[in-house]
Amino acid sequence: MTEKKMGTLDRRHVMAKVQARRGDALMVTGLGSTTYDAGTADHLNTFCLWGGMGAAAMTGLGLALAQSERRVLVMTGDGEMLMGIGAFATIGAQHPKNFALAVIDNEHYSETGMQATHTQRGVDLAQVAAACNFASTETVYTDGELDAAIPKLFGGDGPTLVVIKVNTQRYPMSIRLRDGARLKDRFRENLLGATEAYY
């Protein structure tokens, strides 16, 4: 029997590497650790969900359809993605070329006591997405594989999924903006301009 490959990457290292290459991409992050990670690199083009578990990928789809000329990247955890697993099918059916999804997969519900998620028990999200008509899917374990995968998040025809296996290191909460209404207004004003954002 082959030994199961474990995630060794550090989630904050992953977030910093992805953010460094984001350019003018629009980002949506899912609760909770991925939103905390994004809080370490607060950005006007990032909308951080801290509720509505399961919402991240679909929020990214709505944004990608509305902003078809812009790249949209969703970053979320394995537990958050599993709660909205039907989104793989909905996104695959819509097939937006400008949409990419990075699942930061530590195989645990790390905010609630480190219970195992299904990804620790044989569920392969990359294969789910591939079966749901994503244009490209892969799973990365090493820094070298991550470096090779990051350009696919920001270029090439989507929908794209990269599952990034990380270790179970936890970090302090680092939310910058708790108020979703303020965060939404900030995002919209930066993207659309004040006149349209507040009309």
């Binding site: 949506v28 919402a55 929020t59 709505g62 944004l63 909905t90 819509q94």
Partner: peptide, 20 residues
């Protein structure tokens, strides 16, 4: 946009709102 379940639509339209 056909959904697999209704709550997907709430998240989708939050994204639509963000995108104008």
């Amino acid at each position: 946009i056909s959904l697999t379940t209704e709550e997907e639509g709430i998240a989708l339209l939050a994204g639509a709102r963000l995108g104008g």
